[in-house]
């Protein structure tokens, strides 16, 4: 069987290269402490984001043209595409709003790797099997990936924080904002991610209840999303109640993102209901 390659995935291939360009520009900007280079990186990231978003809608249209119409949020390939979109969109919003220059150096690689990994997946548009025909599913995947992307940005900020903390005036860290600002932004990204992860888990439970009559069945993916939820809930508690900040919360944030990655990919090596991200 040779699945046809939809035009939207050709567009994704182009976007992958654009993100790679953005990545290079951001890194060059960061290493040479040049806001202008990083700014060029941001322009490339925005261009990639436009193409990325266009491909999402194009794929949606294509699915209707094939008589298998559905929101493209139903398999691993599509989850990687939406992750890249949300990641870069969040990045751009935070950079502009908080006047950061180099956050992209740590976030564009994630978007790039997501799409490069997507290239290894089948991009064939397939109709939805009965269990997946639910609006709860779309809400579930979308919010879960909003959460993942916010956690990805938090990861970038946590790494920046740790670098800045180690040598505030090092060659690559002197151009970063103050450690305190990075710490606060990291925490706020975690809150955003936690809210969406919560909504993602809950919409998933509601969906499972309408499809199978059980809102929770401890399948590996569900369990891992709960593990992730517990880790970030701990982070929020130590911060709010114990007043932890800085290095310790940055480390928990990194651990939390490892759990996100495992929930997303690792679980595929275990057996369960969820075949994709």
């Amino acid at each position: 069987m040779t699945p046809s390659v939809p035009p939207s995935s050709t567009l994704i291939t182009i976007v992958t290269f654009v993100y790679f360009g953005a990545l290079v520009l951001y890194w060059a900007g960061w290493i040479y402490a040049s806001p202008r280079l990083a700014g060029a990186g941001r322009v490339a990231a925005v261009a990639g984001l436009l193409g990325n978003t266009a491909s999402f809608f194009l794929r949606w249209v294509e699915s209707y043209r094939m008589g298998a119409g559905h929101v493209p949020l139903s398999n691993l390939y599509e989850s990687l595409v939406i992750f890249a979109i949300i990641c870069v969109a969040t990045l751009v919003v935070i950079e502009v709003r908080y006047k950061l220059n180099y956050l992209g150096a740590l976030v564009t690689p994630l978007a790039f790797f997501a799409l490069a990994y997507a290239a290894l997946q089948s991009s064939e548009i397939r109709p939805l099997i009965p269990a997946l025909q639910s609006n709860w599913l779309h809400a579930h995947v979308f919010t879960a990936f909003l959460g993942y992307a916010a956690f990805a940005v938090a990861l970038g900020l946590a790494v920046m924080y740790l670098l800045k903390k180690r040598s505030p005036d090092g060659s690559i860290t002197s151009s970063l904002p103050e450690a305190g600002v990075l710490d606060q932004l990291m925490y706020q990204s975690v809150l955003l991610g936690f809210l969406f992860l919560t909504v993602g888990i809950i919409t998933g439970a509601v969906w499972a209840n309408s499809a199978w009559g059980r809102y929770w069945s401890w399948d590996p993916k569900e369990t891992w999303s709960l593990i992730t939820w517990f880790i970030y809930a701990s982070l929020i508690h130590v911060r709010l109640v114990k007043g932890w900040a800085g290095t310790r919360t940055a480390v928990i944030s990194i651990v939390g993102f490892a759990a996100v990655l495992f929930t997303w990919f690792g679980v595929n090596y275990l057996s369960g209901l969820h075949a994709y991200g």
């Binding site: 401890w218 590996p220 369990t223 891992w224 709960l226 593990i227 517990f230 880790i231 809930a233 701990s234 508690h237 759990a259 679980v267 275990l270």
Partner: peptide, 14 residues
């Protein structure tokens, strides 16, 4: 408890 639950939950996925 959150950490212990998170850690032990892993067992059941393996």
């Amino acid at each position: 408890l959150l950490f212990v639950l998170a850690a032990t939950s892993i067992l059941g996925t393996v």
